[in-house]
């Protein structure tokens, strides 16, 4: 009997404490972002989808078409093509496509690139209605950006 009464009282007290905690939080500022109006800033190392880095002087992609990224990709979502450059030295990138529907954002391609020609974009609002839209033409994107 005594235990029961004790339990009722301590239980009621614990419930009152719980309600006090929630009511205190009612007056604290919210912690969530108001999404469409505000959005989070991505840290420098954020792994978004990849994009081509351009040489700041020439404005051309730094890529030398060594195919290392294509080989490193576990999902096989990168395909690129190049042709001999006019000056005769090295290759020039002619096509770079990323199949985002396959990409798992692991970042191995960026790690494999010895020429810093690939980097992560900070874009994270990526949603598509058609499958074809998932295939990015990175060369075009790099030129548009410039």
């Amino acid at each position: 009997m005594r235990n029961t009464i004790q339990e009722i009282i301590s239980g009621a007290y614990s419930l009152a404490v719980g309600m006090k905690i929630t009511i205190c939080n009612l007056f604290r500022p919210t912690v969530t972002l108001h999404y469409p109006h505000e959005s989070a800033t991505m840290p420098a190392r954020f792994r978004g989808h990849v994009e081509l880095a351009c040489d700041p002087e020439t404005g051309k992609p730094k890529c030398v078409v060594c195919m290392a990224c294509q080989r490193a990709c576990p999902s096989g979502c990168i395909s690129l093509d190049g042709q001999k450059s006019e000056s005769g030295k090295g290759k020039v990138l002619t096509a770079y496509s990323l199949d985002f529907s396959l990409c798992s954002l692991c970042g191995l391609c960026v790690e494999s690139c010895k020429f810093d020609a690939l980097r992560f974009s900070k874009q994270y609002n990526l949603a598509f209605t058609r499958r074809e839209e998932c295939t990015f033409n990175l060369l075009e994107r790099a030129q548009v950006k410039k």
């Binding site: 339990e7 301590s10 239980g11 009621a12 614990s14 419930l15 404490v17 719980g18 905690i21």
Partner: peptide, 8 residues
């Protein structure tokens, strides 16, 4: 206080 001690 909020979880562990809560009677429920």
């Amino acid at each position: 206080a909020f979880v562990s001690k809560n009677i429920i």
